[in-house]
């Protein structure tokens, strides 16, 4: 168990380049344990790249990421990952329960097969996201929101200390959005750290207590109340955000 008060995630000088064009540039990011953080920025700002580079899924040009003080190789069991929904083939022949059980494969290790205990854990996670009735359903029959919740359940069974979620709110229905928010709060209450790639500025202050504004570089990072300012948003989005009106963000000219 990690000690309270230490940094859940410390990213130091992380740089990733595609074809020698920087996708993210010299990122320094410190996330305290128990933070519920949104990563926000315009398209092409490198939000997903940041997560993938931190998790070693794409090669880094420079920099390091420490999870509770340990490099990724030693901290895999601390990390939970929710990839973008569109990254997999939803016509794959498998059931919802099966997908959720996949979250336990890493812990099971080589050769061992999931058994009754794993099944119980997966069912519990499905209940948490409100998909218990869908456990036996084939995944191609799910709606977009249900697919997202399936992925969330898969991350929940990982029982990780720090979660990375790539656009979980993208194109989901209201029920799913509420369910995701509930789960985020629940995780937050249990002291877990959650980083969410997010694209809807208006809900940021309501959902998240920490915020990182990203546009290739980190523009600002910290508690939402301090970071979510018009000045910072303009720096991030380049003048297209014009005013903060009672917490509402208004856009100029679409």
């Amino acid at each position: 168990m990690p000690e309270p008060g230490e940094l859940a995630l410390a990213i130091d000088d992380l740089t990733v380049a595609y074809d020698q064009k920087p996708a993210i540039w010299d990122i320094d990011l410190e996330v305290p344990q128990g933070a519920l953080m949104a990563i926000v920025g315009p398209n092409g700002a490198g939000k997903s790249t940041l997560i993938k580079a931190a998790l070693n899924l794409i090669p880094r040009a420079a920099g390091s990421a420490l999870f509770h003080g340990k490099p990724y190789e030693a901290a895999r069991h601390l990390v939970g990952y929710v990839p973008q929904r569109g990254s997999v083939d939803w016509d794959f022949p498998t059931s919802v329960l099966d997908v959720v059980t996949m979250g336990l494969y890493g812990k099971l290790g080589w050769l061992r097969r999931p058994g009754r205990r794993e099944r119980a854990k997966a069912l519990a996670a499905l209940e948490q996201v409100g998909l218990l009735d869908y456990a036996g359903r084939q995944i191609s029959q799910l709606s977009g929101g249900q697919q997202q919740r399936t992925f969330l359940a898969r991350a929940l069974v990982q029982d990780a200390q720090i979660y990375f979620m790539d656009e979980p709110f993208a194109a989901v229905d209201a029920t799913t959005e509420a369910a995701i928010v509930n789960i985020l709060r629940e995780l937050n209450k249990r002291g877990r750290t959650v980083l969410v790639v997010h694209h809807d500025l208006q809900t940021v202050p309501e959902y998240f207590d920490w915020l990182t504004l990203l546009n290739v570089e980190v523009v600002a990072s910290g508690p939402t109340c301090r970071v979510f300012t018009l000045d910072n948003l303009q720096k991030t989005y380049g003048g297209r955000v014009t005013s903060l009106h009672g917490g509402q963000v208004l856009a100029a000219g679409g």
Binding site: L57, G103, Q158
Partner: peptide, 12 residues
């Protein structure tokens, strides 16, 4: 086969 990214992130 289903989700290579998740597999790698999950320690396989």
């Amino acid at each position: 086969t289903f989700d290579a990214d998740f597999a790698s992130a999950g320690g396989l």
